[in-house]
Each structure stands twice: as C-alpha cells, then as structure tokens.
C-alpha cells in the first residue's frame, strides 16, 4: 500500500546511506542475498524499491542486479518462452521474437503503468513489489507461467507457479532470487479490461484444450493480497451470450470477496466484476477461432 505516514514526508532525502553491491553474476548476487538476507534490498529497475526507501523502509545493503549477466533478455524455445527477471517492460514490448510468438503479451505490457515506468521497471520488479494493483502477476498467472527462483540458501532452482508464489510469499520464503519467468509457447487468446484501474483490472486467457473445450484462467487485480485467480472452462455451446453471463457469475462466486484498499467498495466490485468478466469471455470466445 502506498499510504504514507504523515509524520515525516516521503522523500529521496530520507534515504540514508547504504552499502551498494553491484554483482555481475547470478552466483554473486545469490551470495550477497544469502549473506545479508534480511538486511538487503534488491534493486533492479528501482522504481518500487526507491519509493519504498523514500517512505522510510531502509536496509543497510542494496544489491543492484541490473548488470547481472543472464538476468535479462528474452529467449524463445520450441515449447517455452523465457523472460529474464530483470528485463524491462519496454524491452518486452519491442522484442520482435516475442511479438511474433505472443503478440498479445507485448500489447498487454504496453498498457502497464506509464512509459516512464515501463522504460525503467522490470518484469521481476513488478512481481516482487507485491503492490496491490500491479498487473504482472495476474497476466502471468492466466498464461500459466512459472516463476524460476534461485534459492540462495540451498543454491538450488525452484520453479513455482504464480499461484504457489502468491501463497508462500507472505510467509518469509527465505532468500529467493527471481531469475526468470517461463511461459508455455502455444496459441492462446488474451483479453483484459483496465477501465477501472487502478482500483480494479481484469485479464483472462483462453485456449482450445484439444478435447473440444475451451479452457483458461481469469484474474482480478486490485486487492491488497494480490490477484484473485481461477480457472474457466467453456464448451462450444457456451459461446452464446446468456451462458457467458452465467459462467462469469459462477466464476466470481468462487472468489473471495475483493476488498480494495482505495476506491469503490466491495458491494460495487461484486456487482461489476461479473459484468466485466462476461465481457472478457465474449471478447475471448470471439477471438479464439
């Protein structure tokens, strides 16, 4: 939550001195993270970490990872797309390979925040900031992405789904370095609604599952505990309008009540989310041949 303590104004001048570390390999970054664990902050794009420091959350060590080799860039495999955690949003938007393989993700990223944020901010930073309203976890969840972490204590790799990560992130999962995000490479339709941002934003993905059904996931972002995510399934007959309203309603009923830190109340959200979901389903079912 970006609510300030009014006693002392948030300011860059509130950032006391710190020890700066600039590792160049993942192993070095990991060593530093393990060594200083609770006393260190990771700095990639630096947007959220800096704003947090301005509000008085300070640590004696800052580990700047922008120069770490292998932490940024986009690699397209046969079945998988891998995006380095320190890849800036803009570099996702302009990557020709990704635009060919998954153009809707490029378009989705192009609507995040604003251009200054996207030029500076990284995909990993968006996930790790854990700010309500940040949209990257939601879109990655509906695309069935995996987050690849290096566990700096055990020096092992840990792959977590977005859902798994959201579950464990509050319970001090230890010194984890997000290294990359892996997405399945397959035809998939993506649609979103950002009309009520920053209070509320929705994203949904849908694909043919090979058995005549359309399957996917839908996510609502805005609540302080992170996006609310659930699966959706549509039969071919389900493409018709009234049924999509029912599917949306049933989908929303499976979610916990969304309480927004700012903006409209829960009553409004519970009325509007099913409507926006139905519209997303309409868009998606048309988009998917």
């Amino acid at each position: 939550m970006l609510i300030d303590d009014h006693t002392i104004a948030a300011s860059r001048r509130r950032i006391a001195g710190f020890r700066l570390h600039r590792p160049v390999t993942i192993d070095e970054a990991c060593d530093l993270l393990a060594r200083f664990s609770d006393g260190a902050m990771l700095h990639a794009g630096g947007i959220d970490v800096t704003n947090r420091m301005k509000r008085g959350f300070l640590q004696p060590h800052v580990i700047a990872v922008q120069q770490v080799a292998g932490l940024s860039g986009i690699r397209l495999g046969e079945t998988e797309i891998e995006i380095g955690a320190a890849t800036r949003h803009w570099d996702i938007e302009i990557d020709p390979g990704l635009r060919h393989a998954l153009p809707t993700l490029c378009d989705y990223v192009a609507g995040l925040g604003n251009i200054r944020i996207r030029m500076q901010g990284t995909i990993g930073g968006n996930i790790m900031a854990a700010e309500p309203g940040y949209e990257m976890p939601a879109v990655l969840a509906v695309l069935d992405a995996e987050l690849v972490f290096r566990d700096c204590a055990t020096r092992t790799e840990r792959r977590l789904t977005v859902d798994q990560w959201l579950e464990i992130r509050g319970a001090n999962p230890g010194p984890l370095l997000l290294t990359s995000i892996r997405l399945p490479r397959r035809p998939i339709a993506l649609a979103w609604n950002r009309q009520l941002r920053p209070a509320l934003s929705l994203v949904a993905a849908l694909r043919h599952d090979g058995t005549g059904q359309m399957r996917g996931r839908m996510a609502v972002t805005g609540g302080s505990s992170g996006p609310l995510i659930a699966d959706i399934a549509l039969t071919a007959a389900g493409r018709e309008d009234p049924d999509l309203g029912l599917v949306a309603r049933a989908w929303v009923d499976r979610l916990p009540l969304l309480q927004l830190p700012l903006g409209p109340d829960a009553g409004y959200c519970s009325e509007v989310i099913p409507i926006l979901c139905r519209r997303l389903l309409q868009t998606l079912s048309k988009r998917l041949p």
Binding site: L2, I3, D4, H6, A10, N51, L262
Partner: peptide
Amino acid sequence: ISYRNGQPLTATPLT
C-alpha cells in the same frame, strides 16, 4: 482527498 479514521488516504501525488 478521502479520510479514514482521521487519516488522509490520498494526500500524496501517487494516490
């Protein structure tokens, strides 16, 4: 600039 419990919630450029 809305208030809750006597505290302004949105009295910052970000909010």
